[in-house]
Amino acid sequence: MSKATLTFAVLLAIAFPLSLLAGRVWIDPAATPNAAIILAELRLPRSLLAVVVGAGLGSAGAAMQGYLRNPLADPGLFGIAPGAALGAVASFWFGYAASAWLLPLFALAGAAGAMALLALIAGRTGGIALFTLAGMMIASLAGALMSLAISLAPNAFAMSEIVTWLMGALTDRSWREVWIAAPPTLLGIACFRFARRDLDALILGDAAARSLGMRPGALQAWLIAGVGLTVGSGVAVAGIIGFVGLIVPHLVRPLTDRRPSQLIVPSALAGALLVLVADSVARVLPTVTELRLGIALSLIGAPFFLWLLLRMRKGLA
């Protein structure tokens, strides 16, 4: 087990039980009435979901940065997160969101649609530039359609629901969402693991990677599947949660030997830790209504991003 994996596994093992106790009402398992029920039915699924969503976003960020050889890459670049969000928005628009299963299913269908479109446009060539541009186009199209859906919402309630949902949150989630998100996320991380050697080969650039046996089309297929499963399922149960995929690989990289293959599992653990801690903080903060997780992470992420840019500028100077 690498140093990074061990570090984040230990931190997660410490943070997880604490997150179960943290909240607007701190739980004392021995004294709080109905503590067992609150823990088993509310806190535990929510914390587990934070771990699942964070692990998916963190690992997807590590894989994307490795694939594009760019520290500023984010899983959102593929257009799969906006595609999933568009699916969820459609379920609100058509009034299906009241059904607990239909919203995530619509979101998963949106993610699958974005994946299929991406594979169709990028084709078998496996060219990274075309692939990234196709992803950006899908993200832009999905964003425009979401704005259209909001502006043409059938009623004010639907509009409010859409906007609130898009901010991303883990409030009031149950075991159902855990079961929806956990299997695809694990499968997605497995896809990244399958791609790890090819991601390492890309350290040497596209031509050298191909000479080492990397097949661009196959690698792209693993990545589309991986990002689709991790990010698509994450958006399906928690809405848009930004910056995790961008920040986490940067936090993890200094603890590894910097090869993309060594980043995937520790980034999954670090992503899980970050979302778990951010969600716990969002629960504990004495705001009138609970701070949305997506907002909390963006508030952390934006200054980090700025710091990253300033550091890069210093490096270039």
Binding site: D200, I203, A208, S211, L212, D257, R258, P260
Partner: peptide
């Protein structure tokens, strides 16, 4: 094919600034 033919492209690309030991070890990927 990669086991039998080693190819060195013109551009000396090395992303992520991996240590020389790990850079050389990439040759074992096939």
């Amino acid at each position: 094919r990669a086991k039998r033919i080693g190819y060195l492209p013109q551009e000396p690309v090395v992303a992520w600034d991996v240590a020389v030991r790990n850079l050389v070890a990439l040759g074992r990927l096939p």
